[in-house]
Design a protein around this nucleic acid. Structure first.
Lengths: 195, 195
DNA sequence: TGCATCAATCCAGTATAATGGATTTTTGTT
DNA sequence: AACAAAAATCCATTATACTGGATTGATGCA
């Protein structure tokens, strides 16, 4: 797909999602309505400076405007897609797919999550006595992740690393489902003093 | 930092690293020497179309031209899609995207691979003195993986776990690109007897 | 020092990105 | 249907992105 086609779709998409009219986005960004209209109708090749103003006004990074929109046998090292265990959280409705082979001895665990629009899930990880490292990789849509006091806004392709020793909350603030991968590894509890 | 400043630095940086002169990059990209010079000296705001041509000629994604230089950002747990380092194997042409945050201390490493049709890559992992666990998760297309004597045919959604202590070969036998994720963790060499 | 070669910058001309006001299209209400 | 209000597109004008050839600067060698 051509660059300008991608930009055109992206800008209109984001503008609509914010509920902006051409005039309002022009006001916020400092780019004329006419120009925005030309960009969205793919009748011009905007400069980076202009796109940057738009990205700012839309609260996204410039790169976002160029990013593509997306896509139980024991002791087996291979887990086939059709065999992978799926679980749905009755409370939030989020879907959990066990990607990693179930029986195989590995310190790695790979899970794919599908998160409905608006849903929230929170975990309290304070009282653990093993150190668990985790990384969240957003495959599709957007996810808002709160770690202790910090809040992160992840978009497709972004990856957040953490240790599971704080309160963590997952939230999909958009009106479309989000899909992300969770990678986990648990280190043996090396010399951790327990009270 | 202003967008054009960032682009200016990036383009010159990448061009020099490839050993290209203005003329040579102009030749490869279809953008005039003069224009490239103007961009590098930050005396113009190039359009996305032009930047895209340059990115293609430099074998990087458009987003790379907007990302901060490596080492410029300190110790972040979050890696944005646009900032992720990309590397292309000149031999096979396969693309390697570093998904995990670069500076952050984590035993986990997440990489996204894009494999051209017909391409093959092989590694010899026999002489390692650390135990590395790995899982391959096919996101798109199909991959054929040979581990020692065993051969596995993976399809989209399938996941294969292994330890890196044998010969391993990746091959895309189809006529379409394949995309897969690689998850790695390296355990400390616990009680390994050395001869 | 002088010549030769290559790389980067300058400059004038042209194409097109970008703007503000006028026009058309859409949306909602009575 | 008819009107009003708002939103998007069209249009003439201006600013500037982009190009090809000319000029300057840098590097190496006799």
């Amino acid at each position: 797909m051509h660059v300008d086609t991608l930009i055109a779709k992206r800008v209109r998409e984001l503008r609509k999602s914010r509920g902006y009219t051409l005039d309002q986005l022009a006001e916020h960004s400092g780019v004329s309505r006419s120009m925005i209209s030309l960009i969205e109708r793919e009748e011009t090749s905007p400069t980076a400076a202009v796109l940057n103003k738009l990205a700012d006004a839309l609260s996204v990074t410039l790169a976002t405007l160029f990013a593509d929109a997306p896509g139980a046998v024991p002791e087996q090292p291979l887990s086939r897609y059709a065999e992978q265990q799926i679980w749905r959280d009755p409370a939030s409705g989020y879907l959990r797919r066990h990607v990693s082979p179930a029986g195989f001895a590995s310190p790695l665990e790979l899970v794919e999550l599908t998160f409905p629009p608006g849903a929230t899930v929170a975990f309290d990880n304070v009282a653990r006595n093993v150190i668990t490292h985790q990384q969240v990789w957003v495959l599709e849509g957007e996810m808002e992740i709160t770690l202790g006091e910090q809040r992160w806004q992840l978009q497709a392709g972004d990856c957040l690393a953490m240790t599971l020793d704080r309160h963590i909350a997952f939230h999909n603030a958009t009106d479309r489902p989000a899909r992300y991968a969770l990678v986990l590894t648990t280190l043996s509890p090396v010399s951790r003093r327990t009270p």
